[in-house]
C-alpha cells in the first residue's frame, strides 16, 4: 500500500521532469509552424492553427545569412570531427600500447587541460590567429575546436585500446606486420565502439560551440549558427523565421542523440571516471 503510493509519486516526478526538459524543444518546434500573427497573439495558442510552412520557406529567400551560417557550421563540424577521430585514434594507440620516455607526463598535461576554463586560452589563441591571418575563417575555428575536443577523445580511445588483449598485436608484430599496419588493420577495427563515442561527442560539442566562435569569428560571413543566430535577438523580434532556423539547427545533434543515445551515455560515464 505504502510502496504503491511512493511508486506513483516517483512516476509523477519523472513525468514532470520529462515535461520540463522536453517542453522548450516542443515549443520552438510548434512555434516554427505558426504565422507571425499567431505568434504575437495574446493569449497564445499552444498548437498552431494550421501547419504554416512560410517560416521555413523564408529561410531560403535571399537577404539573410542563415544558409551561410549553416554551411559554416557544417564545414567546421565535419572537418573538425574527422581530425579529432584520426588524431585521437593515433594518439590513443600511442599512449595505450607504445609507451615512450615522457609519454606519461605528456598524457597528464593533455588531460589537465580539460579542467582549465577556456577563458584562459582565448587571448593567446586570438593573438596567434591574428598573426597567422586566419581570424574569420573556417580554418580558424576548426583548429582550436579540434584541440579542445581532443583530450577527451584521446582519453576514450586510449581506454578502448587498453581493453584489447596484448596477444593479438604481439602475434601480428612477430608475423612481421609493421607497427603502423598492425594499428591500421588489426587494432583499429577493434575500437569501433570508442570511435563512435568520439564521433558523437566531437559532433555535438563542435556543432554547439559558442565561445571560440564568438571570439574568433566577428564577421557575419564567418560565423557558425551558434553565434550568427544570436544577432537576431531583440526586445520584441520576429521569432517566426528564427524559430524555424533554430529547429533546423537543433535537428542534427538531436537526430544523432536519438540514434546513438547508448554511446552518448557511455562516453559521458567513461570520460568522467578519471577526467
Amino acid at each position: 500500500m505504502k510502496s504503491k503510493w511512493i511508486n506513483g509519486i516517483m512516476y509523477a516526478a519523472l513525468g514532470t521532469a520529462s515535461l520540463f526538459f522536453i517542453t522548450p524543444l516542443l515549443y520552438v518546434m510548434l512555434t516554427s509552424f505558426k504565422t507571425e500573427n499567431e505568434i504575437f497573439r495574446v493569449p497564445q495558442s499552444l498548437l498552431p492553427d494550421a501547419l504554416y510552412a512560410g517560416n521555413y520557406i523564408a529561410i531560403f529567400e535571399s537577404g539573410n545569412n542563415f544558409l551561410r551560417y549553416f554551411a559554416n557550421s557544417a564545414i567546421i563540424t565535419v572537418t573538425g570531427v574527422f581530425f579529432v577521430l584520426v588524431l585521437s585514434a593515433l594518439a590513443g594507440y600511442g599512449f595505450a600500447r607504445l609507451p615512450f620516455r615522457g609519454s606519461g607526463a605528456m598524457l597528464a598535461a593533455i588531460l589537465m587541460t580539460i579542467t582549465i576554463p577556456l577563458a584562459v586560452f582565448l587571448v593567446p589563441i586570438y593573438l596567434m590567429e591574428d598573426a597567422w591571418g586566419i581570424l574569420n575563417t573556417n580554418l580558424g575555428l576548426i583548429l582550436p575546436n579540434v584541440a579542445v575536443v581532443l583530450p577527451f577523445a584521446i582519453f576514450i580511445m586510449r581506454a578502448n585500446y587498453m581493453g584489447i588483449p596484448n596477444e593479438l598485436e604481439e602475434a601480428a608484430l612477430i608475423d612481421g606486420c609493421g607497427v603502423f599496419r598492425t594499428w591500421w588493420s588489426i587494432m583499429l577495427p577493434l575500437v569501433k565502439n570508442g570511435s563512435v563515442i568520439v564521433i558523437i561527442h566531437a559532433f555535438y560539442n563542435i556543432w554547439g560551440e559558442y565561445t571560440l566562435a564568438k571570439t574568433l569569428a566577428t564577421k557575419p560571413d564567418a560565423m557558425p549558427l551558434t553565434v550568427g543566430l544570436t544577432l537576431f535577438k531583440g526586445e520584441v523580434w520576429a521569432f517566426g523565421m528564427l524559430s524555424a532556423v533554430i529547429v533546423l539547427s537543433m535537428l542534427p545533434p538531436i537526430i544523432i542523440f536519438l540514434v546513438f543515445q547508448k554511446q552518448l551515455i557511455e562516453g559521458i560515464s567513461q570520460g568522467a571516471v578519471k577526467g
Binding site: L225, S249, F257
Partner: peptide
C-alpha cells in the same frame, strides 16, 4: 531528460 545535453546552449538560450 538527456536530450538537452546535445542542444547548442546558445540556441536554447534564444528559445
Amino acid at each position: 531528460i538527456f536530450m538537452p545535453i546535445v542542444v547548442p546552449v546558445s540556441l536554447s538560450a534564444l528559445v
